[in-house]
Structure formats: structure tokens, C-alpha cells
Design a binder for these strands. Sequence first.
DNA 1: GTAGGGTTAG
Length: 610
Amino acid sequence: MKTLAALPKQTSAPAKLISPSTAARTPTRIAPAVSTESQFVPLIHASKVVLHLRQIHAQILLQGFSWSSLLATQLVSASSLRNAIDYSISVFSQYHPKNVFLFNALIRGLVKNARFEVALSHFVLMLRSDARPDRMTYPFVLKSTAQLFLRRLAGELHCMIFKTGVELDSFVENSLINGFLAAGLLDKAKAAFDQMPEKNVVTWTTMVNGFSQNGDNEKALSVFSRMLEENVRPNDFTVVSALSACAKIGAVEAGLRIHKYIKDNRFRLNAAIGTALVDMYAKCGNIESASQVFSETKERDILTWSVMIWGWALHGRFQQAVQCSKQMLRSGIKPDEVVFLALLTACTHAGQVDLGLNIFDSMRLDYQIDPSMKHYSLIVDLLGRAGRLNEALKFIEEMPINPDLVIWGTLFCACRAHKNVEIAEFAVTKLLELEPKHPGSYVFLSNAYAAVGRWEDAERVRSSMQDKGVGKGPGWSHVEVDGQVHRFVAGDNAHHKDANEIHQKLEEIMSGARKQGYMPGTEWVLHNIEEEEKEDALGSHSEKLALAFALIQTSPKTAPIRIVKNLRICGDCHSLMKYASIMSQREIIVRDIKRFHHFKDGTCSCGDYW
DNA sequence: GTAGGGTTAG
């Protein structure tokens, strides 16, 4: 065994600026004898744990090598990759002067450890120092701005790169595009993309993903198609992004094509691709295919399980959701907070109150997961729907975090459904207290005012909502016909080329339904938050337009009609869909913001409980 | 003369 005594004598100037207290206490025998500083580099690379790095650090000092920026950089880099970012920062702060390598190593390490603000603050330090950022610096800085959605900074970095003449390589350019997309600067992203001479697979993937993140999933899918036309080979990242775009808008035909592409091109069904496929099928209403792909996916991580459990929950398949989570436990994966959200959602939709409460307790006691506001609001919903309002109130009062507007709103809706004026009024008072802090939740508040007869206040809230432009946005529905996604907006089909025909068809459906007992009207539902505006003629709700369009465009014996809606389906549309499923003898699948409704032979899979 | 890199799913 080599010891320090066997190592060569000091040959260079003593170490500077390292305090021994930061080095390990027993710096013996870690490394073989070395005679030059560069020989430490492979030792640093080979170190598996931070303790070894600390020992090497100490040995460098004891041997009296000049403490070079090379070694400092290597230590910063190696420790940041071994989850010891605080040690990286301490090494960084001890070495002077700091050059571009050292800054880059630290910024990279901070980004890898998701410390984006700190990364940016070190970038600012860098600008104030003598070290000039180079083409290695910008990708990480841009990643930080992207993660933090910093709009202005993305533009400023763009200018800085041009002003300082940093070499533009594909890494810098792709990062710039991603920075623009993350900041919502679609035009800038598109301009940068269009003028890029050599777009690689990452460039294309960034665009697909970026459009999808910005809610323009149709555009994301068209970019993906263009990429194939230009013979750029997608990689795993690309197909996952494209599948995610399909999932968001329920584009099952596009999703099927991508699945076929994956099979034809022999992509390995790894956890990422398997998960994306399961998610796509589940969110497109095809839960059986989701389940099929899930069983074919042998490599599963927690995301794979959680999208499957979510899928069952969304489709109201409570038993399978529970089954699936048990199977997950048996396979040795511990549930996280999202899995619990999925399970609690499944309980809520199935009216399984006591089981839901047990699951909630188990989450805290058996898995040490602190419930988030979302978990709490699911429990309030669970109790509230079942009419256990006093329990719900008690539960809220005992919550360890301050209940937000959603919590009180959920309680309020439950009270209204179960006609408990007393607790409803209490919930409204709480909503009022919270009003100034929640500019985004005016609809809720306005409903609350209306419910207690304060019409002027209701109107005031509604108009201030319009002034501030924080409206919930128009309700829309999608329906896919022959792989094309068609979007309908509530009360506005005038611009559609088939407007007359759609209107006629809708009339036909409604009069047919009336003969069978359909009563137009705002049927009572538990939650009418985010329903489309009542004052819109019911006949023009976007899902009805989509239904009429799909009935015109597709032949009777084909696949189910799948409609995706951005808000909750209203009671009237829900009722009409049931009649429409009888008259057309078609299966109609509606995905609203909360769950799936499978209408068949006059009934809905949600059992009218939603 | 110079160590180091960008995109994905609930």
C-alpha cells in the first residue's frame, strides 16, 4: 500500500488559499504516488464518492502541488456530478483567480443539480469578473432561464451572444431556441429555427417539445411530420415529445401513427417510450390499449406506473387503479405524491370515501409524504360529494397549511349540491378573505356571490375579471377526423366552413333527443366551476358542435367519436350525449378537464357522478 | 497550449 511517506517530495510552491479544515481529516493512502498535478485528474475521475474527492483534495495540499485551476475545476465538476454541489461551491469559492473553466464547471454543476437561480447568480458574478463567458457557458445559462421561465433574460442573452461574438454552434443555437420557447417567445424561436443552416435531431425535438409546452400541440405534431419529410431521424426524446402532444389534445390517430413508426423503426420499448405510449392511449380514451402497452413495457419506472394508475382513475376504473398500485408495491417501487393523487382521484370518482381516507393516512404514516394542497382538496371533495360536510369542514380546519381558494371553493360547491346554507356561507366568507390574493379565480368567487344573492358583487367580480383579462378563456373542444384535429369554440361556429350543416345536424340531434325525454337546461352538477358560460345558448357549447361535426363527417360503423374538452362538461351536454349515443348507435368518448365519459347505449361510464 | 455541452413523459 502506498502511503504519503512514499510519495515524492514537494516540488513546487506551497498550496494557496485552501484551508485544511475543508480537507478530509485522514488524508492517507488514497492515491498512488504521482509526480505531476495532471496525474491527479484520472484519480478524480475514478473517485466514486465525495469522500475520495475530499481525500484527494487533501493529498494535493499535503504534497504541496500548486493548486491549479485545472485541479479545482476537476474537483468542482466531479463533486457536482456526485450530488455534492455544496462541496463544489466551497472548492470554487476557495480558488482564485476564477477563470472561464472554473465558472463553467460550477454553473454546469449547479444546473445538473437543479439550482437554477444560483447558476444564474454565478453567471452574473462571471460577467463582473475577468472571465468571459464562452460557447460552453451559454447552454447552461439558457437552460436556467428556460427552467425559470425568464422571458426578458432569454432575449438579453441572445443579444449578449451576438455582441460578444461568441461562436454559435448547434449547442448554443438549440439552447437559444429552447430558451425562447420556454419564455413563450414563439416568433423568436421560429426565426432562429428557420435560419439555422444545419438543424439536427435536437433542434427538431426542441421545436416539437416547445410548441407542445406552449399549448400548440397541432403545431408540435406538424413540426414532427415535417421532420420526417426532411428525413431527419427522430430519437427517443422526439417520439416521447410527439406522443405527449397527442396525449394533450387526444389525437389518437396521430398517436397510432407514431406508435407504428416506433414499431417499424425498432425503437426499444424502454421506460420513457412505454410511459409516453401508455399516457397517450390513456388520455386519448383508449384505456385498453394503454393497458396493453403497459404490459408489454418491461422496464417500468415510477412514471410508467403512475400514468397507468392515472389512466385507470381518469376512466373511472377504480378497481384497476387499486390493483395496479398494489402490483407496483409488489414490484418494489415506492409510491410518490403523484401516485397518491391518482389513487385519491380514483376514490373520489368512485365515491369510495373511507378507502380514500385510509389511503390519505397511509400516505403520511407509511410513506412519510407530506400532503400537498391538491391532496387536501381531493379529500375535501371526497367528503363533500358524499355529503359529509361537517367532517369536510373539520378536516379543513385541522389542515396544517392554510387552505387556499380551491379548498373553500370545493367545500362551497359541495354545500350547494347538498343544500347546506350555513356551511356554504362560511365557505363564502373564507373565499372573500382570499379574494385579493387570487386574481385567477374570479369565476369561483362570482358564483359564490351569486349563490348568496349578492348579485352586484357577482357582477363586479365578473367585470373586473374582464378588465384584467384573467377570464377562464373560451371553452373549446377538439374532435379528430381522419387524423385532422378540428377545434370548436363555444358559441362561435360562424367561421367554420360547415357551419350551416353543423347547426342543422345539432338541431336534428336535439329534437330527436327531446322525443326520447331529453330536457334542455342547466342540469345540476356538483362542480360548475369552469363550465362554459351559462348565458351562451346551450345549443352552442363546443362539445355539441364537435359532436355534430363528427356525426356528419364519419360513417356510422367506424370507431368511437372522441371529443376532448378544455373545461368540465356541463350537465346539459352530458345528458344530450347519452341520447346521442342511443340515436346514433355510436360510442361517444368525451375527455373533460377532470375525467373521461364513455357514453354508450344511453349511459355514461361515470354513472352521472362527476 | 487549455479541462467542460443542448432536447423527453405524470
